[in-house]
Design a protein around this nucleic acid. Sequence first.
DNA 1: AAATTTACTGAACATTGTTTAGTAAACAAC
DNA 2: GTTGTTTACTAAACAATGTTCAGTAAATTT
Lengths: 190, 190
Amino acid sequence: MRRLILDAALHLFRTKGYEGVNMRNIAEAIEYSAATLYLYYKDKNELYFALQFEAAAAKRDHLLPAMEVLDPMERLVEFGRRYIDFGFKHPDLYDLLFITKAPMEHIENQECWALGIATHTFFVETVQACIDQRYFKSTDAATIAYTLWCHAHGLVSLFIRERMRMYPEDQRQALAAKSFEMIIKMAESL
Amino acid sequence: MRRLILDAALHLFRTKGYEGVNMRNIAEAIEYSAATLYLYYKDKNELYFALQFEAAAAKRDHLLPAMEVLDPMERLVEFGRRYIDFGFKHPDLYDLLFITKAPMEHIENQECWALGIATHTFFVETVQACIDQRYFKSTDAATIAYTLWCHAHGLVSLFIRERMRMYPEDQRQALAAKSFEMIIKMAESL
DNA sequence: AAATTTACTGAACATTGTTTAGTAAACAAC
DNA sequence: GTTGTTTACTAAACAATGTTCAGTAAATTT
């Protein structure tokens, strides 16, 4: 039943966007009453956390191929490329994971958090592997990882939240791509 | 009257956060009925745009001292520092300007847009000035500016939207500061 | 057969954005 | 000075949405 609710919610979510979905919508889609949803999820927040878990799983799956690249520097680049690609291809899921102002209190107790942490840890470890293999002179893996993440997240979220209107629509993706190339070049000087 | 409404709205906004404010709230604060607000603003969107203008003005004022630095590279660094500082000090305003999912359609017609564009143009021109004075080898001012913006925005927005929970709360600001230093160092290799 | 548990729902409530119909005061025109 | 018009405002209602509650009916247990 939870599966049924989640699938319907996620589908609505991805087609109609976050705003366009409400409890009655979801209930309707699975031909139950809205009250039924509250039997399986305490409130909208709990449903939100469950959706976040789905999104985190989708993201992990999207990043998976990058994790298998052997050379740490190539892996890092591919990881970044795929992270950004995920954001552009699934703006609703990305939004859910990294932008939505939602009950972030106690998210540490949610299973979606563990998934996100695992991915983040893998990312930092990849940076550390680059350091170990002398790709970087700096040895501050945490700050390097965070700096790269800031760039990627800024890039995706400015795009998703429509703050690139000063650039013609058909040039935004290209600019993002150029910026990604640039940050890689910059990182090589670290 | 618009002044009265805006001041009340902005004040509520900054104390109770974006979510915690509604038309009735604002009306109450100035001791009028909610319907009155609709005499001065067509709908919540128009009020939103007006608030965005206030936020844009506050941001410009916050950045103003940086604009007066003579050396373009120092100016660029100070600009970045103050941009980030603004985001940390006024998360609600920053949110309003760069994160809130709100009616971005037709924002080009709003006065707040002009203000934002002016600041952005100044930023790109500063990068261009750095190029002209051989601070960078790269000559792509647009991409450099955008890349730096992505980093700063990512940094601020991950913080504001509580996506840094994997770092202890008392270390987040320090990490952000270190990352800012790092991106400057990286930029010097451009 | 009776009691209890499980699964579900219609109706209601609270909150919030928005509209409508109307009031009352100020002002204008004759 | 009465009448019409404009201005400033509001109470009440409507619609959408999150949430709760009382109740029903089938399944299961005793």
